[in-house]
């Protein structure tokens, strides 16, 4: 039996000390120990992107990272998009453009979108489609998701939407 390891990590701005088995996946730590359940567990095989979070600002699949690898690092989940002064532009875009049906892919899509807009504030449609190529949506399709990211991009640049 392997013991647990202490992990000090910052989740959505809050420092946490957690004890994890080495084999625990980051997504399980987030959902079961933190616990914040906005991050979804989909395929578990690196195909769907439902579990996307930011690790030190980079979008990663949290089922493809060990929990212990978050030690000393910063994790941002969809809950971290809550702001005191209103909705995050990506969240607003997803609402305004009717971007979700079942909503299962949505947290991952949103985190990928946040990472894209941080790197490329004014993406083309092609840029957006490439950026979300690791996130699968199986009900609405991608047209409204692209519109939501375009909405958020405009909003973040202070343009009218």
């Amino acid at each position: 039996m392997v013991g647990t390891l202490a992990v000090t990590t910052t989740v959505n701005g809050q420092e946490r000390e957690l004890h994890v088995e080495p084999r625990m996946l980051l997504v399980s730590m987030i959902r079961d120990l933190v616990p914040e359940t906005g991050t979804h567990l989909g395929c578990e095989t690196s195909s769907c992107g439902a579990c996307t979070v930011l690790l030190d600002g980079k979008s990663v699949k949290s089922c493809m990272v060990l929990a212990v690898q978050a030690n000393g690092r910063e994790v941002t989940t969809v809950e971290g998009l809550e702001t005191a002064d209103g909705w995050h532009p990506v969240r607003e875009g997803f609402k305004e453009e009717h971007t979700l049906q079942c909503g299962y892919c949505t947290p991952g899509m949103m985190m990928t979108s946040v990472a894209l807009l941080a790197e490329n504030p004014d993406p083309s449609e092609d840029d957006i489609r490439k950026a979300i190529s690791g996130n699968l949506c199986r009900c609405t399709g991608y047209v409204n998701i692209v519109k939501a990211v375009q909405y958020a991009a405009k909003k973040q640049q202070g343009l009218s939407v």
């Binding site: 690196s46 992107g49 996307t52 980079k58 979008s59 990663v60 699949k61 990272v65 690791g134 996130n135």
Partner: peptide, 9 residues
């Protein structure tokens, strides 16, 4: 190669 999320890691 793979997708942007995998490429970040």
């Amino acid at each position: 190669l793979a997708d942007p999320l995998t490429r970040n890691r």
